[in-house]
């Protein structure tokens, strides 16, 4: 990021008023970043902001309610913050949002697929166009376009949609809504059996670790999730694809009109199930039926949190 110093300066100024500022720093190896909790001035120096900063830090906010929290957000992350505000799960006066223009983050799965299981990473350099990884003595030069996260390739909100501080210049995006849902349209057009077969195969891999759920900034139920309850008893603990798939369907339904497509669920999945597709499908429907996108306007009410006897685009009373 070009204006890291500006951002650090903004954080430094705001820190005395805050309990913590959440950002990113170097992780367990040079190829990975990790969330970073800044409480003291010296923590600020370790702040890292680049294409490795994949985590959506908004996930931490609901559990820190009541504290004064600063949060550094990419464009997509800011939508989660807004959605949390919309649902009154966090309080505006307690969060300070540090935004910047994001040029995209990498997809570690893509890197792994190209580079293979490389063992120890010696170094990693990230620029706007390239990721240079050197591992076990070999250097790999990866074009950013090959390892960029899918969501970033069609990102419409690269700048924080809501912020108290903004570092650097805004980035312009030319992507359209349709660009972002090409994969959904493509999938929709497949024959039923093929779609069914696809999910049967994909979902069968699920190990029900619930990493997808725990990573999701909007999944605030956590320990109270229906997936792990007997009363109500929606799912059994059987290792059958039926229950695994049902869990994802429930997750998608609970996120309908709330999901901001940060992609954390899919990123967290240890077995690479493309579960974001479920949520994108729901969002596409929500857009068509309610003309609504989650996490854009802090004052808007998510459609499924309202009750109207008559919806504009749902004609139940056609008899």
């Amino acid at each position: 990021m070009q204006n890291l110093e500006d951002l650090k300066e903004q954080v430094r100024k705001a820190l005395p008023e805050l309990d913590v500022v959440i950002g990113w720093t170097g992780g367990y190896d040079p190829l990975h970043a990790t969330p970073h909790f800044i409480r003291r001035d010296e923590d600020i120096d370790k702040l890292q902001v680049n294409a490795l900063c994949v985590h959506n830090l908004a996930t931490y906010l609901p559990s820190m309610r009541g504290k004064k929290v600063g949060i550094i957000v990419k464009g997509c992350d800011s939508r989660s913050v807004v959605e949390l505000l919309q649902e009154k799960l966090i309080d505006r006066e307690d969060v300070t949002i540090f935004g910047f223009g994001c040029t995209g983050v990498v997809d570690q799965t893509k890197i792994r697929r190209i580079v293979g299981d490389v063992g120890n990473i010696d170094s990693c350099e990230v620029s706007g166009s390239e990721v240079k990884v050197s591992a076990s003595g070999t250097e790999h030069k990866l074009a950013m376009s090959d390892v960029l996260s899918e969501k970033c390739a069609t990102c419409r909100y690269p700048n924080a949609v809501l912020s108290d501080h903004f570092a650097g210049a805004e980035i312009t995006s030319t992507a359209t809504f349709e660009d972002g849902y090409k994969d959904v349209v493509e999938f929709e057009e497949k024959p039923e059996e093929e779609k069914f077969g696809f999910w049967l195969k994909e979902m069968d891999r699920c190990i029900r670790c619930y990493a997808c759920r725990n990573a999701c900034p909007m999944c605030v139920c956590r320990d109270h999730c229906v997936a792990q309850s007997r009363d109500p008893h929606w799912l059994s603990q059987e290792a059958h694809v039926r229950d695994k798939w049902m869990f994802q369907v429930i997750h998608a339904y609970h996120l309908a009109g709330r999901c901001t497509e940060c992609g954390e669920c899919q990123r967290a999945c240890p077995v690479d199930i493309p579960i974001l597709l479920f949520k994108k499908k729901m969002n596409k429907e929500i857009k068509e039926v309610f003309d609504y996108e989650a996490g854009i306007n802090p004052d808007a009410t998510p459609p499924l949190m309202t009750f109207k006897a008559e919806e504009d685009k749902i004609t139940e009373r056609k008899w």
Binding site: V220, H224, D231
Partner: peptide, 16 residues
Amino acid sequence: DIKRCIGCGKCIQTCP
């Protein structure tokens, strides 16, 4: 069920 409720308030908003 007070044990399961996380106080998200969604029901309060939708109850007609």
